[in-house]
Write a protein that binds this DNA or RNA. Structure first.
Lengths: 143, 143
DNA sequence: CTAAATGCAAAGCATTTGCAAATAT
DNA sequence: ATATTTGCAAATGCTTTGCATTTAG
């Protein structure tokens, strides 16, 4: 198999990323990371479909096992969405999601939740660790 | 059956609320509304358990059908939570949730999302209709 | 060499559907 | 009187589990 320089560099990256989360490196996992990197937000069925090309025999059980393990190792996280299926994304710093109710397109938006959190903390007796913020509307294309 | 004045007034309220959302008034639905009113946030299995007293023969199918219909009529909404089961709540003005990761306790907090939304809108080409904000941490009791 | 990951089939839950009987309006 | 709701059972769908085989380190 002939790989471009970019492809080789990505591969190295993926290997390092997996290893830094105590995840053994398998071809299936590399491809999962590549898909998540390239698409950003992927549902289970999308992931399964995209993996078929390279791994015709790959089973859904493998996907479920991997997603579970990768979540436990804080390598990725599930984004639960109103009125649609969950998607998965690589772990990154906290951010909000912009979700198009029409086509489902999702983009990340960096957003300072600290103001929100300190406000909520001042109004309640909770100490807050993290937040999930999803904003639903219509993307440019669908308008 | 003997009802207190409060109980009678709640019942009247529930009837009116259901009717204003084009939902036929059944005893099962009245009890669902009462439980949601009293507990605020309820999972499907909690709802089922709490309904057993008054309706020993009530089936899960009825709960699912009702929750679905009530969502379609904007009478209630599902709150999808990270790392735990969804809960359902009566429709109210937009607000955030404070969720205790330890005991699961959920409280509403009114929160002005308009700043957030206009910021997100200025940074993207989305027009935003609504948002879901969940803040996860530890409640006073669990600290 | 050892522990972990994969793939398959089976099992386990969660949710939906079809339908006859009961109920709301 | 009619359309909707209920409750049951069956069907569907999604996720997990067990186990033999393969693979990573």
């Amino acid at each position: 198999m002939m790989l471009s320089i970019d492809e080789r560099e990505s591969l190295m990256d993926y290997v390092t990323q997996l290893q830094s989360h105590q995840l053994k490196v398998t071809p299936q996992r590399l491809e999962i990371v590549d898909i998540l990197t390239r698409y950003g937000h992927v549902s289970i069925e999308e992931l399964y479909a995209k993996l078929q090309d390279k791994f015709p025999t790959l089973s859904l059980a493998t996907i479920y096992k991997n997603l579970k393990m990768m979540q436990e190792r804080s390598f990725l996280s599930e984004v639960k969405l109103a009125h649609q299926k969950s998607v998965f994304e690589l772990q990154k710093e906290e951010h909000a999601h912009l979700v198009c109710s029409s086509c489902g397109a999702i983009v990340d938006i960096s957003l300072d939740a600290s103001t929100l959190i300190s406000y909520a903390q001042s109004k309640s007796s909770y100490t807050i660790d993290y937040s999930t913020i999803n904003l639903y509307g219509t993307c440019a294309k669908c308008q």
